[in-house]
Amino acid sequence: MALLSVDELTVTFGGRGRASKAVDGVSFDVDQGQVVGLVGESGCGKSVTSLALMGLLPSKGVELGGRADFDGTNLLTMSQRELRDMRGSQLAMIFQDPLSSLNPVVPIGVQVTEILQRHRGLKGEAARKEAAHLLDRVGIPDPTRRLKEYPHQLSGGMRQRALIAMAVACAPRLLIADEPTTALDVTIQAQILELLKELVDEEGTALLMITHDLGVVAGLCDQVNVLYAGKVVESADRHELFAHPMHPYAHGLLESIPRLDAPRGEPLKPIRGSINDRIAWADGCAFAPRCDYYTMECLTGTPALTEPAAAGHQVRCVNPVREPVEIATLDTPDVTATAHGGTSA
């Protein structure tokens, strides 16, 4: 059985009349020790999905539907008290902007030790020692000194490392990373990805990687789910997805990546329109207005997830693309080649 099994998750914001569905029936599994990617552009519902799983969405004005079974228990129906016990110990999360995600007026040490105290009952010197050990483990040099410092005294990369230290402090079984590298420099991005990979490999922690960056997906994820307008439109093994993207959206995403070996002056290939040009899933395929392959058939109700080619490669499309994308030099940070250099962060 999967560690996390999300089934037809829906998140609806707003009250009656002007409700808007941010997540519209998302299903995916994360196995023990697996790295699963949730990919999509801004507004496709990926962050909301992660917040819903953590129970961090506001209780007012938000309606959750479907199931999200973590180790057999539905996270969505848990009480806040039960969720609080899970958060930080079983489920942990890393956020996008490390500066705003750390409290500017509380020392790093306190921000790390409070989670140790909460879930592991460590206090005083023992907590400080463990916190220093954690900072050391995520590659922060001179951890005892750093514990006394404030977030503004750390570099961007070190802040994200500190947040990762907090997230892994209680050896969670599932780590959710919501665009953990977006706010960082490219070189630091690679280091952070490398660190995550290392931690996941060592501990056997499952990682749900939420990103819009296909480079991150290519370097890290075992399984990839492509989200569009609140629904999974394609789900496949990483190699399978990059070799044969079948949903026109996934296909378009891969094709839009600039190629270094492309002839000079060749125009980039964007996906036309924006995520606002869409129809309701109930009426047909939400991507249809932007799709180069659409037919009248696309406008007859929600397309079902099918496996038109390989087993385990699911596509929500009536006209799946059969031609492969030419990806000669995918813009992938080569995470294994980057030195694990915390000192330069």
Binding site: L102, N103, L163
Partner: peptide, 24 residues
């Protein structure tokens, strides 16, 4: 955002409010 981080750590709401919210 740091309030969300504090909640993600599983801290009790009273602690989130006083230690992280009111403090700032």
């Amino acid at each position: 955002d740091y309030i969300r981080t504090a909640r993600a750590k599983g801290l009790r709401e009273s602690k989130v409010v006083v230690k992280h919210g009111l403090r700032a």
